[in-house]
């Protein structure tokens, strides 16, 4: 038996969240006294795959079929299921991304496995296979026992540190499944990528700078963008801002938007309604800047500044630019 990790590429590199999944997979493999294999699909640089050895991955099964450069759920499931069978994998590890969670759920049906998404801890394996997952929109944790023979885990982003296991390069094996036209019936006709300013994906970012209605209008967003740029951060916004079309919906974090869990979340001019907190409460450090000292967000913050964003943020930009990187 072994542990199988699915790693996702982005612009040819491996996503940070997938390096976390690889770390998790290796640590589970250590617990179970076995090795961790990765499976990669589509366009990923081979040197990036070999470097997975640093996270303890010994072997990478690589399906470079160019039809899989776009995400095609049924085809991905077929490739990963075949890899799981070949490796006799009893634990499959994914990142809790849109892709990872989708493929994980389908594989749970196909491999008759137990699935836990949003997982924040390594398993407890004395008397079961118990993992902790984040539930109630970050307001609680649940311990779940995965009872099937095959366990499938989607690891919450930024829940564990990427480890360097110090092993050599992973070996790369070419791999393919016999895909048919039927596997491509739901293939995308078109893929439209956003302009990710500065190249930082919101869901992958270690730092997020987020703006609310306190910024008064989209014309003032340069404050958010400039601070984000100085910190190497992604930008986000509150629900009212997306509803007003000041910013696109894919930047909306909160209960009904995207949930983020960066190391640092900076909220500018956001009052901190409970629905907003639900999307950001897993952030390690929260900074709140608001001119209203009674804003509820301060109760959830680690650092706070009561002041006008138009005075405060330029000072932060200046201080951030002065940091030696």
């Amino acid at each position: 038996m072994s542990v199988l990790v699915f790693v996702e590429g982005f612009n040819g590199e491996i996503k940070k969240s997938s390096l976390e999944a690889a770390t998790y997979g290796y640590q589970v493999a250590q617990q179970l006294g076995t090795s961790a294999t990765a499976v990669a699909i589509g366009e990923v640089h081979e040197d990036a795959l070999a470097k997975l050895g640093e996270q303890g991955i010994s072997k990478v099964l690589y399906d470079a079929d160019s039809r899989l450069n776009d995400f095609v759920a049924d085809a991905y499931v077929k490739v990963i299921a075949k890899a799981a069978q070949q490796e006799n994998a009893k634990v499959l590890v994914f990142s809790n991304s849109n892709i990872g969670a989708a493929v994980g759920a389908k594989l749970a049906v196909r491999l008759n496995g137990s699935l836990a998404t949003n997982v924040t801890t390594l398993p407890k394996t004395d008397g079961g296979f118990i993992v902790t997952r984040s539930v109630f929109s970050g307001k609680a944790f649940a311990e779940v026992n995965l009872t099937s023979d095959v366990k499938i885990i989607a690891v919450k982003k930024n829940a564990l540190e990427i480890a360097n296991a110090g092993s050599g390069a992973a070996t790369i094996e070419k791999f393919s499944a016999e895909l048919t036209d039927a596997d491509f019936v739901a293939a995308p006709k078109e893929t439209i990528m956003q302009d990710t300013s500065g190249g930082v994906l919101l869901t992958e970012a270690e730092i997020v700078v987020s703006g609310g209605r306190g910024l008064k209008g989209p014309e003032n967003w340069h404050l958010v963008e400039d601070l984000a740029k100085a910190l190497g951060a992604a930008t986000a916004c509150s629900k009212p801002v997306a509803d007003l079309d000041w910013r696109p919906h894919h930047e909306h974090v909160g209960q009904t938007g995207i949930a983020v869990s960066p190391n640092l979340y900076i909220a500018i001019g956001i009052s901190g309604a409970i629905q907003h907190l639900a999307g950001v409460n897993s952030s390690k450090v929260i900074v709140v800047i608001n001119k209203d000292p009674e804003a509820p967000f301060f109760k959830a913050a680690d650092y706070g500044i009561v002041g006008d964003a138009f005075d405060v943020v330029p000072k932060l930009i200046e201080a951030a630019r002065a940091l030696d990187k």
């Binding site: 307001k139 609680a140 944790f141 779940v144 680690d302």
Partner: peptide, 14 residues
């Protein structure tokens, strides 16, 4: 069922 909920907890207060 394939996932049994064993127990719940709340995050530590800030």
């Amino acid at each position: 069922t394939k996932a049994d909920y064993v127990s719940f907890s709340k995050p530590e207060k800030k």
